[in-house]
Design a binder for these strands. Structure first.
Lengths: 325, 325
DNA sequence: CGCTACATCACGAATACTTGCCATATTAAT
DNA sequence: ATTAATATGGCAAGTATTCGTGATGTAGCG
């Protein structure tokens, strides 16, 4: 493929002149300009971005790390991240981490090897110590890593909203399904608050913890069956949308009526929740905002700026569906 | 950050020696080797990948273009693409195209600017002419572009399977919802075959075409309402999972029983189909295979190899749910 | 012991490609 | 003629790799 040198040769000018035409910088006569432009066209020249990047010491890539891109929540957030980054001239390098814990370290190394300019860390990790206090353009998505700014969702409010929804619906005996505790996510908060609120109203709460890195609907169905086998008397369920859907399916199969017999509140607000029948009452996370804010934050860090706060907290809302009263 | 020069200086050897240690090539005495290694450690040196790439003229990036990463089908396929590429030392650059038709051209330009080594084109396009016969490492995912190899799904069989499912359930009057015809996708075939099979059995088929780039559940609900308003007598529906879900929701809201009154067959086999209640009978696309094959195909092209065929056709299966008899 | 031949090791220069700064050259205006 | 503005060229920087070449060291043979 043609290089800037080939263009220069063809247009009979110096390489630097071609560069000037390319970047519309400095002085170039209209005549030369045309010559260069037509040489470019003839040779079908495209500037080599790698050489450019080497010079500028940037890549315009941002690494986005998620546990599972096929999970609706992460897919949606990633979509908004991509959109915002694209608007700012950056591209997304995608990385799935499920069941590959060492990839997180690799990913941070990508930053140090100048493969990406920044990282949005939306993944769950078991070895956060590895990249503490790196002081590189990294932001965490809904996770707490010491020394790394995070964009989180107000899970306390989320837990409270979920609790209130089930309380209003008259639940007395509920179960909540939470992610693996080993994952240092701020989202644990919602289960703590949920529990507190429920208990303060005299409602019995049982908590079931999922295994690490579980993102598979069949597994969710198994969990639902096990839980419902063990706890036949529950009248309320709080879990992420997908897990909630699995419970609904098992409950309906067992002849329970929703919401009359059992109430269900989801968490996430993915299209899952609106797509199903009955539609799920769920705590909606601000995925668009989350994505945009995360993107803007890394960009700020890359530009050498500082974030206003080390923790940005975004709001959640309850979306009423037909699984609660 | 430290460069190879800094390491060389510190270890008191030539830059090229450091390079040899780095790449374990050529002769390096054990002594020198140790010196270099410890200098690297001390300086926390990481080779600059950009410079490497410039020299080798490769980036180890593959562009993956999808209309909407938040759509479960594309999210799932992307996941498998990423997995396979990762195994082969490549990384995914993600690009969403919905409502940005010029991005496809930009994306192909990325190839020519050496930003990515290859492209998997899973997007719908209105201007395929732009990158016909480019002879670059591009493969199309379930789309037909002249001169570009494609990995497709046997939509003929898919259409037949869907038709048979509705026939077996005793439908007499069905509607199928198809994507925008402007999108040159091989998936049109399923609707043609579906129609043929149904008609050959004396079943009336009506076809509704969606607008271009429609990936939003609310819109699907609107379409479902409109269609059901207009065609009150239909007893069978064939559409992609998400659209099918919208129909189910509207049907249930209107007091119809599924599958007694209306049968529904989906297409895709995303987790949507298994997550909902009633579970959807659907034609399952081989998403894992699709992703892996697409990834392997670009890699073959990048290595200068040739694909066995310009069209690779993957199999589909019917997954029986509770929306047909 | 000394010389040749070969293996081993290290280095400099060239390469990849673009950009930015400095220097030089040309033209026009005062 | 001097200054300013315009136009172009040349070279270095940015970093890692590879190749050719020179410099050692070692072994074998006469």
């Amino acid at each position: 493929m043609a290089s800037i040198r080939d263009v220069a040769r063809k247009a009979e000018v110096a390489v630097s002149t071609v560069s000037r035409v390319l970047n519309s910088s400095g002085y170039v006569s209209e005549d030369t300009r045309r010559k260069v432009l037509s040489a470019m066209e003839e040779l079908d020249y495209m500037p080599n971005e790698m050489a450019r990047n080497l010079f500028h010491n940037r890549t315009n890539f941002i690494g986005v790390m998620v546990p599972d891109i096929s999970h609706p929540f992460f897919a949606m957030v990633t979509k908004f991240i991509e959109e915002e980054l694209y608007k700012n001239g950056y591209k997304v390098v995608l990385c799935n981490t499920v069941e590959k814990s060492n990839r997180e370290k690799e990913f941070v190394d990508m930053l140090r090897r100048r493969i990406v300019d920044g990282i949005i860390m939306g993944a769950h990790s078991l070895e956060i110590e590895k990249y503490r206090n790196l002081n590189l353009p990294i932001v965490a998505l809904d996770r707490i890593i010491e020394g790394i700014p995070n964009i989180c969702v107000d899970h306390c409010k989320g837990g409270r909203l979920a609790a209130q929804a089930l309380l209003h619906s008259g639940c007395h005996n509920v179960v909540q399904i939470m992610g693996c505790r080993k994952v240092h996510s701020y989202s644990e908060q919602r289960h703590i608050v949920f529990s507190e609120v429920m208990k303060s109203h005299g409602v019995q709460v049982r908590t079931v913890e999922l295994a690490w890195n579980l993102f598979n609907f069949q597994e969710y169905l198994n969990v639902a069956k096990q839980v419902l086998d063990k706890m036949q008397d529950i009248d309320g369920i709080f879990a992420t949308d997908q897990v909630a859907m699995a419970f609904i399916r098992v409950l309906l199969e067992r002849g329970k009526r929703i919401p009359q017999d059992v109430k269900v509140v989801g968490y996430d607000g993915t299209s899952f929740a609106e797509g199903c029948s009955p539609s799920l009452t769920t705590v909606v996370q601000p995925m668009a905002d989350l994505g945009k804010t995360a993107a803007d934050s890394v960009l700020t860090l890359i530009k050498g700026g500082r974030l206003e706060s080390d923790q940005i907290l975004l709001d959640v809302e309850l979306k009423q569906g037909n699984t609660t009263l």
